[in-house]
Amino acid sequence: MTPLGYRGYIASRPVRGSSSPQHVQNLVIRDFAQRNGLLFKLSATEYAMAGSFMMLDAVLDELPQLDGIILYSQFMLPDRPERRRAIYDRVLAEGKVLAGAVENLTLRTPADARRWEDILLTDRFAAREMPVF
């Protein structure tokens, strides 16, 4: 079967509080695709405005023509859990794959979705910085 390919998805705003140049984000995605033998299709670049997921929504609409989506990071997903779950449901319902390149994680099953949520939710509550004395 001819592969449909994986659409990359990169950011124009900080991810987890830090910014990476877009060409570096693409390198990380390309490397992930190469290591996993996936056909990489040009990345979609999300708008810089906080809370915008218009490009991600466009890529989700394109899912039937793709094997999946490679996010630069799973932490690019929306903050609201219900919004993330809607994305997982859509990907799973179409039998596609969501991947996080930085994390080297893939989501193909409901169990994977729970695993992603455990990481994303815990990260919101876990301490991020060491206090300076």
Binding site: F75, E103, D123, R128
Partner: peptide, 15 residues
Amino acid sequence: FSPYCDKRLGEFFEP
């Protein structure tokens, strides 16, 4: 839930 440094959840650690 203790502080993470450069080795972060997702990339390096997992609950």
